[in-house]
């Protein structure tokens, strides 16, 4: 649904957010039996200013930051930020593409303090470096762990189950 008037009627705050930044592309999703919400795709360079615009437009509750590894697609990773505006009762999803050869993205800890642990976890699991993050260290895996487990080329690590002979 990309009818601008429909989007404007339903979600005015999100459209002001998207207008703040050039490269932002707006799309909507209506879950079954739920209300429409907005997904904004943005480029890496415009990402911090878009997030700042979201905070200013009233999406003051930080919900989630995660990454998706698409593997065969370019850019390989998607970093997805979920925000909620409790005043308007709306959700907003921001997606940024991060390429494989240069997995870096600006941090938003100065905008939403809550993204701290989420960015650390995303670095731990995917290897995406967040520039400007105050403490980008391992969060869930042990400190000396090598590799980024949630990448698609990191195997699940299952050991073959052998049934030992009874003694």
């Amino acid at each position: 649904m990309t009818d601008e008037s429909q989007i404007d009627a339903v979600i005015p705050a999100a459209s002001t957010v998207a207008e703040a930044v050039e490269s932002a592309e707006l799309s909507t999703f209506t879950p079954r039996g739920g209300q429409t919400y907005v997904i904004i795709d943005v480029s890496r360079d415009d990402y911090p200013s878009l997030v700042r615009a979201a905070l200013d437009a009233g999406y003051e509750t930080f919900i989630d930051l995660c990454a998706v590894d698409h593997l065969a697609r370019e850019p390989r990773f998607d970093v997805v930020v979920n925000l909620v505006s409790t005043q308007h009762g709306e959700r907003l999803r921001i997606k940024v593409g991060v390429p494989n050869d240069d997995p870096e993205l600006a941090t938003i800890t100065s905008i939403y303090a809550g993204s701290n642990f989420y960015e650390r976890e995303t670095w731990d699991m995917f290897g995406i470096v967040f520039e400007g993050h105050p403490d980008l260290t391992r969060l869930l895996m042990p400190d000396e762990w090598e590799g980024h487990p949630l990448r698609k080329d990191f195997r699940i690590g299952a050991i073959p189950v052998e049934f030992k002979a009874t003694r």
Partner: peptide, 12 residues
Amino acid sequence: TGGMFNNYALVQ
């Protein structure tokens, strides 16, 4: 035995 989580994260 590691239960249903036969993966990198748990001691089996």
